[in-house]
């Protein structure tokens, strides 16, 4: 990603405070179109708060969030607090509506926002569920009957229901087995390529960072310390970042990613 490219979303001088506790101070961040941006940081550095602020679930104390919107798709949400572009969100625990089946969950935004007939919305919902790799039988199950990985996939299908420009993923691979997590990483890259998505991905999973992220933003000391490609971030002069990428797990993920690339060639 070159610096000359204009940002799709630019965050400037963002401050988030809860009482006397300050989570973000003067935070700046750019998100470019078509990239997968991984956001990392220690526990409590406000990764999820940043995501919630971008979505509009959390009103910042100060700061601006600007969207260079493609006027092609009008925002589905009239609420001014929400981002002025079409976006989908995958919450950490899926947040699927427990009283609805999987296909109804995906059909909800299609019926409510796009105004489709129920029958058509459910057909399209099944297409989306198949796209995220769920078997057709799963469509009629309730979330309580599904495994963690299937819930994540179902929630991703719901996030993709309205064909968003921007996808927010909050720890998508947390709680998945390594095979499921690797599948999920691949799925996100495939969908990004196919649907021309921009992805904002909060994660703790180093493998995800190595295999799917184009750029990485590190949150620490209430702001984004560095946001760049993985190689440059890993070389950044900061003890926490150094420990993060060069600790035992970081090295393992790095070796795994390298092995995969060489095999791919």
């Amino acid at each position: 990603m070159s610096d000359t490219q204009t940002a799709f979303i630019s965050v400037r001088g963002l401050c988030n405070r809860f009482g006397s506790h300050s989570v973000h101070e003067n935070l700046d961040l750019d998100i470019y179109r078509g990239e997968i941006l991984g956001v990392v940081g220690g526990s409590g550095t406000g990764k999820s708060v940043l995501m919630r602020t971008l979505i509009g679930l959390n009103v910042p104390a100060e700061g601006r969030i600007e969207v260079v919107s493609s006027a092609a798709k009008p925002p589905p949400n009239p609420d001014p607090a929400m981002l002025a572009c079409n976006f989908g969100v995958l919450f950490q625990h899926g947040a699927l509506f427990s009283s609805l089946t999987l296909q109804e969950n995906v059909a909800v935004p299609l019926i409510e926002q796009a105004g489709l007939k129920r029958e058509h919305a459910e057909h399209l919902a099944r297409v989306k569920l198949a796209m995220v790799g769920l078997p057709p039988e799963a469509a009629l199950n309730y979330p309580a009957e599904l495994s963690g990985g299937m819930i994540k996939r179902g929630a991703l299908a719901r996030a993709l229901a309205l064909d968003p420009d921007l996808l927010f993923l909050d720890e998508p691979t947390a709680g998945l087995d390594p095979i499921g997590a690797a599948d999920f990483d691949r799925l996100i890259v495939t969908l990004r390529d196919a649907l021309d998505l921009t992805v904002f991905l909060v994660t703790h999973d180093l493998d995800t960072l190595y295999t799917s992220c184009d750029r990485i933003a590190v949150l620490a000391q209430q702001r984004v310390q560095v946001a760049d490609t993985l190689e440059r971030v890993a070389e950044f002069d900061d003890p926490w970042i150094h420990d993060y990428f060069h600790g035992p797990r970081g090295r393992a993920a790095q070796t795994a990613a390298r092995r995969q690339t060489t095999r791919g060639h």
């Binding site: 099944r126 297409v127 796209m131 057709p136 469509a139 009629l140 495939t190 390529d193 196919a194 649907l195």
Partner: peptide
């Protein structure tokens, strides 16, 4: 290429019988 990828992904998803109902 991206549109082709999109069409191929959707086609792949629709290959199964999605409307099969119990």
């Amino acid at each position: 290429a991206s549109r082709r990828a999109l069409l191929e992904t959707v086609a792949e998803a629709q290959r199964q019988d999605l409307d099969a109902r119990p």
